[in-house]
Design a protein around this nucleic acid. Sequence first.
DNA 1: CCGCACCCGAACCGTACGGTACGGTTCACC
DNA 2: GGTGAACCGTACCGTACGGTTCGGGTGCGG
Lengths: 216, 216
Amino acid sequence: MPAAAFDIATSRPDAAPEFSPRQQVVLQHALKLLVEGGEKALTTAGLARTASCSKESLYKWFGDRDGLLAAVVAYQASQVQFPSEAGATADAETFRAHVAAFVEALLGVLFSETSLALNRLSIGQSNTNSNRLGQLLLMRGKHMISSRARTMLESGRRHGLLKFDHAEDAYQVLYGLAIRDVHVRLLLGEAASPAEQDLKSQAEMAVDRFYQLFGA
Amino acid sequence: MPAAAFDIATSRPDAAPEFSPRQQVVLQHALKLLVEGGEKALTTAGLARTASCSKESLYKWFGDRDGLLAAVVAYQASQVQFPSEAGATADAETFRAHVAAFVEALLGVLFSETSLALNRLSIGQSNTNSNRLGQLLLMRGKHMISSRARTMLESGRRHGLLKFDHAEDAYQVLYGLAIRDVHVRLLLGEAASPAEQDLKSQAEMAVDRFYQLFGA
DNA sequence: CCGCACCCGAACCGTACGGTACGGTTCACC
DNA sequence: GGTGAACCGTACCGTACGGTTCGGGTGCGG
């Protein structure tokens, strides 16, 4: 395997793999193919044609097809950004608004076509390849987000705005109230209902119920 | 396409496709292969060898590979049974216990290896084949369960035990409180934590919070 | 005993795709 | 102008797998 090939073992959660600009363009093309047609649509020949690069380069950069898939997941995960939480606990009202904004951002990410495509890909591969993709997506995606959420919720608890025993537990409830079974239904290909597309009010509703359970 | 081939268009939600005993055995073998190795592990040659039948029979019975996959999903969905809800609203305590039992059964189904395997399969195929599998799984699985749940919850409301505007909405919340992100994490291949494996206490916790939100 | 229906096992075919090899081009650097 | 690295495009190879065909075997009604 070439030294430049992406390997999960050498990747740190903090340090981005730093793909070259050319490689990033190729990965964006790969992502586009994935979103449009699923895993089957991402063939090495097809990607080479679409991205105007040679198969040889693909194999030099990413090692093999699995390395390419892992690189797509890692790259897209590194692109996801969440709003900063600078000074969000000024008072009760702004903190609650901040929580709602967080939930809305979470919904926006999870319900996006790119996120859905990558989750479909990882889930479809989850019982092969010693499950590299699933691990990667969990590490770079869910766990990063949940740690962000925990610090936010604990900040609220320190300021006497929330009451709970375990931040992880509280976050899980917030997640469940917001996502419910919509994520899985979207993953299965069902279209979101109009109400479910209104992320803002969905988030407000979830936060409302969350405060009924955990508000101080 | 042979007349005996499974076709989603001719299948009714109520009438099971009624596979012959021999075919059911073959479908069980197919399911086993799916659970063990994912979609890639279910090849027509491999299934013929495992189930000691000929490929010719597979194609006669199920039309093609997609028909086989659809048959596996339909068959397994028909096997899932939920506890009856006969006379469950006798008093507040038994009704609440009944709700908890329902949630526990739901968790037991969704977290089972067979359910996970079929969900992985359907999700992996959700952007191909005009998405037959996803539709099938939603129809035979989620929607059946949710209608059962709605009638249960509305029964509780009629007896003055619960308070909500829309049963579907309330059920979604109950689902979210119980499942949270565990389902997706399991689909991605993460192992369930010890606490998450205790379905009974997980269900109790969810129902507890549900009553805080919707108890009369 | 004959024919028919059903089925098994194995051989076979076509193709799509992962992976490799190679000639030709661009470009940076000396 | 020469040299080498990087890369594109294309042709090529091997194989796995979906799907078909065929020979043979078993049970059953007439």
